[in-house]
Design a binder for these strands. Structure first.
Lengths: 127, 127
DNA sequence: CCTCCAGTACGAGTTGAGTCGAACTTAGCA
DNA sequence: TGCTAAGTTCGACTCAACTCGTACTGGAGG
């Protein structure tokens, strides 16, 4: 069992103040499809996004601009939407900002070990 | 290892000695890229191929026709080549047949847990 | 030699995804 | 009221990938 030692923090989810904005439309945990999730992660930029959200910010939602990716906003919107529709991230609207975090609990439950692979990934260069 | 408790018909044992045909060109273990591997597995047909090779025949090579997939030969060649170039399978030429098996050791070493996800996958329908 | 067969190679058609500019929407704030 | 900024939406372009028919190669067996 290679993925028995999880380096990814399990559901260290934030103490939700319960007045959070509702998440944007996303697939339910039972609807997550492995081939869709893998396809979403096959893009290096999206893999970078998920890994950064996973490693550096499990506790907080972060706006799209937080990642510091030098791409047009419309490109980032495209990738965030792809990640959300694949079920990898959850997005909430905070005023003008749309903050995202990885659905760690759902993904660990449905695809155990997957996030460990993402966390262990080494980006080839600066995307 | 998902198929460690797997009984295999002894009649289909291949000549194991060191006079195996050389594998077709494939990436070295250190060259395996997670995003490439995930992209190769994001196609349902390829995911089906890898899973079937993994679950039903990890010890033996199998010709392309063994899977019983109802697709044109040129399509199958396309997907087998994609899997080989991504580093997921190894292919050897036996006379007219080209037999394939999953690179279990390499993949478990480089991406531990990945093949468990493949083995646990449930295909949506008949591809 | 010739035929058969597994699989490849090549090319065309089609689709889908990534990239991005430009215009738009909306919240916060002066 | 109007400005600013975060992010979306739309459309267009490019390019890669999937599909598949057809022609081809190369070994096995007559």
């Amino acid at each position: 069992m290679p993925s028995s030692t999880h380096t990814v923090p399990a559901a260290r989810v934030l103490p939700e103040p319960a007045d959070l904005p509702a998440p944007l439309p996303e697939p339910a945990p039972a609807e997550l499809r492995l081939e869709t999730v893998l396809g979403a992660l096959s893009d290096p930029l999206r893999l970078f996004i998920v890994r950064k959200l996973l490693l550096e910010s499990e506790r907080f939602d972060h706006p799209c601009s937080w990642l510091g990716i030098d791409r047009p906003k419309s490109s980032l919107t495209h990738h965030y939407k792809a990640l959300r529709e694949a079920g990898l991230i959850r997005q909430r609207q905070y005023g003008l900002e749309r903050r995202s975090h990885v659905r760690v609990a759902d993904l660990n439950d449905r695809f155990p070990g997957l996030l460990d692979l993402v966390a262990a990934w080494e980006p080839p260069a600066t995307p």
